[in-house]
């Protein structure tokens, strides 16, 4: 168990956004948190890294390895964030400072986590870029010179650079078209295989869940309404809302609604 959340509540003064949520992510697995916008899934993911806006308060326990995240101070948090837990966001433009080069982002990131040699940092960065299929020429560019898919690749390179145990991917393909989404997720899956990190994958898109997740939780109105292995949920959804979600996600060709068959059909692309 790498991350285990128990009885987590997140609320503003007026409104509770996350109700009594418990879930656990195992080492090296792809855990999907599925829900529509406004279901509280992003709030939940931000609570993990103590990245909530000031007007939101979280209570409960968020156990990461052997530490309760909610009790850590700023300094301890800073050491964990980026190094052991890293985030990838939906809004790839917002994730990069427009007037700084990709190089500067890599440099700064590594410097913050104690890699002192400038040459070493550059070496690492270029290696990381190459590992996500971008050649060294991207190192000197600015974010706006890259396409959405390329930026999201850079995000992945940055996020996985220090081999974190947990990667939180918050709707990372929502702003991309389906072809780039597919490529990005395949890349992420490959990286997961290489590094063995766990992924908390926040999405509203069942297609991605179907293909990549090991286990999943369905979230609605701040509560988790169903959780379990992917095949169990896709084949035998217990909750009406889950059924609705599965039905609403269009898939190609008729008669392949079941997750098991879907898995077989797509087997080749996995390897």
């Amino acid at each position: 168990m790498i991350l285990s959340i128990e009885q987590l509540n997140v609320s503003t003064k007026e409104k509770q956004l996350v109700h009594n949520v418990s879930l656990s992510v195992r080492k090296g697995e792809w855990f999907a948190l599925v829900g529509q916008s406004g279901s509280g899934k992003s709030v939940l993911s931000q609570a993990i890294g103590q990245m909530l806006p000031a007007n939101l308060k979280a209570n409960g326990t968020i156990q990461f390895m052997d530490q309760n995240m909610l009790t850590l101070d700023r300094k301890q948090m800073k050491d964990i964030r980026g190094k052991r837990i890293s985030y990838i966001f939906q809004n790839y433009h917002g994730s990069f400072t427009p007037f700084r080069t990709i190089a500067q982002h890599f440099q700064e990131y590594q410097k913050a986590h104690g890699i002192s040699s400038k040459e070493k940092r550059k070496e690492n960065a270029i290696e990381a870029l190459e590992s996500v299929g971008l050649d060294a020429s991207f190192y000197k560019r600015y974010a706006f010179q890259l396409s959405g898919g390329q930026l999201q690749r850079v995000s992945i390179a940055l996020a996985l650079m220090l081999s974190p145990e947990l990667v939180i991917a918050d709707e990372i393909t929502t702003a991309l078209d389906s072809v780039s989404s597919h490529k990005i997720l395949q890349l992420l899956a490959q990286k997961q295989k290489d590094t063995g990190c766990a992924i908390l994958f926040i999405t509203h898109d069942w297609r991605h869940v179907r293909r990549y997740a090991d286990r999943l939780a369905v979230m609605k109105d701040g509560q988790i309404i169903e959780t379990g292995g992917k095949h169990r949920i896709l084949d035998h959804p217990r909750h009406e809302y889950t059924r609705q979600l599965i039905k609403a996600a269009p898939i190609l060709s008729s008669g392949l609604r079941s997750g098991l068959e879907e898995e077989k059909k797509h087997e080749p692309t996995f390897s």
Binding site: T12, L17, S37, G38, G40, S42, V43, Q46, P53, N55, L56, Q90, N91, D170, E171
Partner: peptide
């Protein structure tokens, strides 16, 4: 994210 924005 939208929700967070609205709350903020």
């Amino acid at each position: 994210m939208k929700l967070l924005y609205a709350l903020a």
